[in-house]
Write a protein that binds this DNA or RNA. Structure first.
Length: 476
DNA sequence: ATGTCC
C-alpha cells in the first residue's frame, strides 16, 4: 500500500484524511506490516465509501481488509437515514449474513483423535458441501416464507436444533423486519433444496481443539478449556442471498442514478435507506439473514447427529453465532448524540463489549464472543468485544485472516491434492468435493491470522480469548 | 460468495 497517503494515529491506527468528495475520513486498524501488504485497492475503496451520502464517523477498515466488490471486505460504514443515508447491497456482500458459529463438544483431543478419520468421513457424508449442493430438506413456497420470517427459531420448531441455542445467536436467531414477500421467485427457487448445505469457497465445517487460552477468566465464562474439541461452522445464505444481492445491485444502480447520488465506482450502487428500493432491500436482506441463521442451525443439527453416532453422549452446546456480512439498524453515539444508524459490516464482525444492552445475560460481563475463522491449516480465534471499540469502529472487529492473494493466483501456485496431502502430514484431515476449491483455499493464500488477531487486540477492537487449531475440515 | 457465463 502507498503509505504516503496515510497519517499514523497510533501503533495500530491509520487515517486517510478527508479530501475531495470524501464526507468523512477513512480509518484503518492494522499493524504497519499488515498495512504495508494491503492492496492499494483497499485504500481506494475506503475512500470511495467515504463519499456516500449520510455516512457518519468514518469509513473503517479492519486488520484483515482486502479488495472486495465496491466496499472492501473487512469494511465498516454507518449511514444516518435521516441525513440522506444510504443502504448498499455491495456494502453487505453477495453472501448475505455469512457468519461463523462455534459449538463446544466437552470432548478431549485425545478422545477424538483415534476416531477422527471416521468422524470426518461421516460429517462429509452428512453435510452437503460444494457449489449447488442440495440437502434432504425441500421447501415449498409457504414453508420458504416461514423460514425467511423465523430464522433459526423456525429450524428449532421443525426439530432441527435446540431452543437453548436461540439466545446464543445474534438477534436470538430471528432478524426482525424480514419481508419474505420482497424475496423474488428466482431467489426462492435457488434456495428450495439448499437448506442445511455448506456451499463452497471459504465455507467450511472444522473440527478444532483449543490450543491455547489467552484470557483465562473469559475463556472459563465461555466454557472453553485448553485441549477441548470444538466445531466451527462458516457459511451463509447460499443461493438465496446471492440472488438477492445480484438483483438489488441492478436496482440500486438505477436508484442511485435517479436519486442523483454520484458514484465514485459503479460497484458502490446504493439507494437512500428511506427510498422504496432501500426499504425493499432491507426487508429482503433481513429475510436472507434469517435464511443464514436457519441454515447454520440445521448444519449444527446434522453435526450433532453425526457426533452422537460416533461419540455417544456428546452434546455440542452452542457458544455463539455471529454474522459478518450484514447491515443492521443500531444506535451509536455520534458527536455526543444517540443516533439510529444503518451499520454495514462486510467481512467484519459485530463485537459489542461488556455491558452492551443488546447482548444476552451470558455475555454481559465478558463482552460478545467474536469468532475469527482462519484458513484450513492455520488457527482460528475466539475474541471478546471491548466496550472501547464503540468509539473506534462502531462496535466492530475483523472476521478472519483475510485473503492475501486472488483465487486465480492460488490455483496457479498450488494443486489441491497436494494441499490435502501436506495438511494430512500436519495431522489435519480435509474432506472436499473440489480439489480446485482446496487449491484456492490453500493456507498460504491467506494473511497470517495470528498477526490479524494480535492487531485486532492491539487496536483495542476486541480481546483475544482462545486460539483454535484445526483437526479436520469439511470444505465446500 | 455464486446453478463459478441462461
Amino acid at each position: 500500500m502507498d503509505m504516503s497517503k496515510l497519517l499514523q494515529r497510533g501503533d495500530y491506527e491509520w487515517e486517510l484524511p478527508k479530501q475531495g468528495s470524501m464526507r468523512v475520513p477513512g480509518i484503518l486498524y492494522a499493524s504497519r506490516r499488515l498495512i504495508e501488504t494491503m492492496d492499494n485497492k483497499v485504500l481506494e475503496q475506503v475512500r470511495n465509501v467515504a463519499t456516500l451520502p449520510g455516512i457518519v464517523g468514518a469509513s473503517y477498515a479492519m486488520p484483515d481488509a482486502h479488495w472486495g466488490y465496491g466496499f472492501p471486505i473487512g469494511g465498516v460504514a454507518a449511514f444516518d437515514p435521516e441525513e440522506g443515508g444510504v443502504v448498499s447491497a455491495g456494502g453487505v456482500g453477495f453472501d448475505i449474513s455469512c457468519g461463523v458459529r462455534l459449538l463446544r463438544t466437552g470432548l478431549a483431543l485425545n478422545d477424538v483423535r483415534p476416531v477422527l478419520p471416521e468422524l470426518m468421513d461421516a460429517l462429509f457424508n452428512t453435510i452437503p458441501a460444494g457449489v449447488g449442493s442440495c440437502g434432504q430438506i425441500h421447501l415449498n413456497d409457504l414453508r420458504m416464507s416461514e423460514m425467511l420470517r423465523g430464522g433459526a427459531r423456525w429450524s428449532v420448531e421443525q426439530g432441527w436444533g435446540r431452543p437453548e441455542d436461540l439466545e446464543r445467536i445474534e438477534e436470538n436467531g430471528r432478524m426482525a423486519g424480514a419481508r419474505p414477500e420482497n424475496v423474488s421467485r428466482q431467489a426462492r427457487r435457488r434456495q428450495c433444496d439448499e437448506m442445511g448445505t455448506l456451499g463452497s469457497g471459504n465455507h467450511y465445517l472444522e473440527v478444532q481443539y483449543v490450543e491455547a487460552v489467552m484470557d483465562r477468566e473469559i475463556a472459563a465464562s465461555f466454557g472453553l478449556r485448553t485441549g477441548e474439541v470444538v466445531v466451527s461452522i462458516h457459511c451463509g445464505s447460499r443461493g438465496l442471498g446471492h440472488q438477492i444481492g445480484t438483483e438489488f445491485l441492478i436496482e440500486m444502480a438505477k436508484a442511485a442514478k435517479n436519486s442523483g447520488i454520484p458514484l465514485a465506482d459503479r460497484e458502490l450502487a446504493c439507494a437512500p435507506a428511506t427510498s422504496t428500493v432501500g426499504q425493499l432491500y432491507l426487508g429482503a436482506m433481513r429475510a436472507a439473514t434469517n435464511c443464514a441463521f436457519a441454515n447454520r442451525e440445521i448444519i449444527s443439527h446434522l453435526a450433532r447427529q453425526t457426533f452422537s453416532e460416533i461419540m455417544p453422549g456428546a452434546k455440542l452446546p452452542l457458544l455463539y453465532d455471529v454474522s459478518h456480512n450484514t447491515c443492521k439498524e443500531e444506535t451509536h453515539l455520534i458527536n455526543g448524540k444517540e443516533t439510529r444508524l444503518l451499520v454495514h459490516r462486510k467481512g467484519a464482525t459485530r463485537a459489542f463489549g461488556p455491558g452492551h444492552s443488546d447482548l444476552p445475560p451470558a455475555f454481559r460481563e465478558s463482552g460478545q464472543p467474536v469468532l475469527i475463522g482462519g484458513s484450513m491449516g492455520t488457527a482460528s480465534y475466539v475474541l471478546a468485544g471491548l466496550a472501547e471499540n464503540e468509539s473506534k469502529s462502531l462496535g466492530s472487529a475483523c472476521h478472519g485472516s483475510g485473503r492475501a492473494m486472488s483465487r486465480r493466483q492460488a490455483r496457479r501456485l498450488w494443486q489441491g491434492r497436494k494441499v490435502v496431502d501436506d495438511l494430512r502430514g500436519h495431522g489435519i484431515h480435509v474432506r472436499s468435493p473440489s480439489m480446485r476449491g482446496v487449491a484456492e483455499e490453500a493456507p498460504d493464500a491467506y494473511k497470517d491470522v495470528d498477526e490479524v488477531a494480535k492487531a485486532t487486540e492491539c487496536a483495542r477492537l476486541a480481546r483475544r480469548v482462545a486460539r483454535l487449531r484445526p483437526l479436520g475440515v469439511v470444505k465446500g
